[in-house]
Amino acid sequence: MATEHESVELVGDELVGNIARSALFAALMGAGSYVSFPNPISPIPVTMQVLVVFLAGIFLGPIWGGASMGLYLAAGGLGAPVFAGGSAGFAPLVGPTAGYLWSYPLAATLVGALVHGGVELRDYRVGTPRLVSAMVAGTLVVYTLGTVGFAYVQGVSLQSAFWAASAAFIPVEAFKIAAAVGIVRSDAIAAQ
């Protein structure tokens, strides 16, 4: 007596892949928070997190790049030590660097949308001007929300917050943009 079995696909392979890649980038974001060193002219540490935000938007696109950063925030908020310096919980989400944290899903979504030309995931191997412009736009989101959040929590003027929370990081962000371009270009070469 022969029996036939039909399999039912509950979740498609593409969705599973996107979820896995989002989880990977959320984990990379957490690891990037441990690469932290003090900024001599700001109370906010330098981390590699904005580089991961760029790469999430570029490699995952706007929807899954933003989702990966949302997953990162959820993990940290629920107690995983993934915020700068290994901090976790609710306090970092309302503290002096909260504006940065909340900007990450928005920035990854924006970078992804600009690189991919919309919400659909397309080839991320675009021209360098487009790639750099997308990351500059993402940087503006991060530092605008970071500055406003810092000013609000610390009770200082926007001008003071800008100098303490944004201007001090511009050279480091230029390095992160250059690093992201290098990573994307090296991936494009490896894919050929």
Rank of each mutant, 00 (worst) to 15 (best):
G118V: 00
V115K: 04
T97Y: 07
G86S: 11
S103C: 12
A113N: 04
V119K: 02
G89E: 12
L93R: 13
W102D: 08
R125A: 15
L78Q: 09
P105A: 08
V126F: 05
A84Y: 03
V126I: 14
G57R: 12
L78R: 04
L101P: 11
F54T: 07
I63V: 15
P96Y: 08
L114W: 11
G127E: 11
L101D: 14
S133M: 04
V53N: 01
P105G: 06
L121W: 03
R125M: 07
G86L: 11
P105V: 03
P96D: 08
L121C: 00
R130E: 02
L131Q: 06
S103I: 13
R125G: 04
R130G: 10
L114E: 12
T128D: 05
Y104A: 01
W102E: 08
R130H: 03
A84V: 04
L101K: 10
P92C: 02
P105E: 04
M69Y: 13
L121N: 03
G77A: 14
P96H: 10
M69G: 10
L55W: 02
G112L: 11
V53T: 09
T109L: 15
L121T: 05
G65L: 12
A98C: 10
A67T: 15
A80H: 00
L93Y: 13
A108E: 11
I58G: 03
Y124M: 02
A84W: 00
V132L: 05
A75Q: 12
F90C: 01
F83P: 14
L110D: 02
L60W: 00
L121K: 15
F90R: 03
A80P: 00
L114R: 07
I63K: 14
G99I: 09
Y124W: 12
G61P: 06
A98I: 12
L73S: 04
G99H: 04
P81S: 09
T97S: 15
L101T: 13
G118M: 00
A84T: 09
W64C: 01
A107L: 02
Y124C: 03
G95K: 07
F83V: 14
M69L: 15
M69S: 10
P92Q: 04
L93Q: 11
G118F: 00
V132I: 14
L71S: 01
G112Q: 10
G77E: 10
W64L: 06
G85M: 09
Y72N: 09
V94Y: 12
L71N: 00
G70T: 14
R122W: 01
